[in-house]
Amino acid sequence: MRALLFVLRLLLGVLFVLASVDKIAHPEVFVVSVNKYQLLPPTLVPLAAVTLPWIELLAGVALLAGIGVEGAALVTTVLLVAFLSGMGINFARGRELDCGCFGFLIPNEQVGPISLTRDGLVLVVSVVVTLRGRRSWGAGWLSRWRDERSRGVGK
């Protein structure tokens, strides 16, 4: 169980780090993606384009590092719910849309059954890590270390 959670935690972490890289490198391309979804009020579009990728990156790094794992997974869960809703709404509107999920890694990926299913599976992984991530191998080492230090000082 702890091993499986470890694998899931790493998988989620890698996915989010990879997803963030191109968006951070090319905000001028990502803002077009965000705008195309037509879901945010216009004034928030550039802000989202600038902040979201860094939130993804930090969440991915936290998951990989085993620090604040469940909180990071909560962030990825919220992001995934938002992305899936956005993709679903646009798919239902019949719009042909570039998913924009992984930037250069999977360019021109259309929003459709494949990307929706894939993100749905990732969402399931994310929920599992949110609820049980603390039990994965290596998670929580920082807080344990801090606890031991403060116990040592108290003696």
Binding site: E28, V31, A49, W54, I55, G71, A72, V75, T130
Partner: peptide, 28 residues
């Protein structure tokens, strides 16, 4: 604790994103 880490992460991510964008040569 989950909500606390999540909020901290979201906040630091946003700040980092805004700072980097302000500082980089071709910021949005």
């Amino acid at each position: 604790p989950r909500l606390r880490s999540a909020a901290l992460l979201a906040l630091s991510g946003s700040v980092l994103g805004l700072v980097v964008n302000a500082v980089r040569p071709h910021g949005l």
